[in-house]
């Protein structure tokens, strides 16, 4: 089974951390993964995005023709990447700051998650990316919660137990929101 997701947002929203977190979580499950960041002029402001593939077999190519899910963290990313959502695919939208989502007549599932609001309620608005990650893993089962928890614990390290906890809380809140 192969999961392919495109994640878009703006610089500072943690798009790259969200992407690499999913990929490292897959490796923690002894599976294969790639993460291809968008690079070039887009690195400086504007939209940041990456394509993550999680697979039980070696990933054929890190730059696939199509993905099966898209996560957009803000309105410009929605406009830019909505065309990449395939038929019967999933679009996860950070509805806290994305208003003009076209919902009628689309052939894919739209999952609106107020990531910023949920993260703010938990006391760490910077963990909005993990709320989106939680929604994504709950909807798709791409990687397990446990593998993500291990990844975040290793990433932030023992020195920042508060940051680890708030990110894991955000992940779980994202999962709960779409259950």
């Amino acid at each position: 089974m192969e999961y392919k997701v495109l994640i878009g947002g703006s610089g500072g929203q943690g798009v790259m951390l969200l992407g690499t977190m999913l990929a490292i979580a897959a490796i923690n499950e002894e599976r294969e993964a790639t993460c291809l960041p968008a690079y070039g002029p887009e690195m400086r402001g504007g939209t940041a995005n990456c394509t993550v593939i999680v697979s039980d077999e070696p990933v054929l190519t890190p730059s696939p023709d199509a993905v099966d899910a898209v996560i957009v963290m803000n309105e410009p990313s929605y406009s830019k990447f909505v065309g990449d959502v395939p038929e019967n695919g999933i679009l996860i939208v950070n509805s806290s700051i994305t208003n003009n989502v076209v919902e009628e007549g689309v052939n894919y599932e739209i999952v609106k998650v107020p990531c910023n609001d949920i993260a703010a309620e938990l006391g760490n608005v910077r963990a909005a990316n993990m709320v989106a990650a939680g929604a994504y893993i709950q909807k798709t089962g791409a990687v397990s919660l446990e593998a993500c928890e291990k990844t975040l614990t290793d990433y932030f390290g023992a020195k920042k137990p508060g940051v680890v906890k708030s990110n894991i809380d955000a992940l779980k809140a994202g999962m709960d929101y779409v259950k």
Binding site: A33, T34, C35, L36, P37, Y39
Partner: peptide
Amino acid sequence: DNVIGQSYGN
């Protein structure tokens, strides 16, 4: 090429 250089993998 930069796809292999800049992407992440196992």
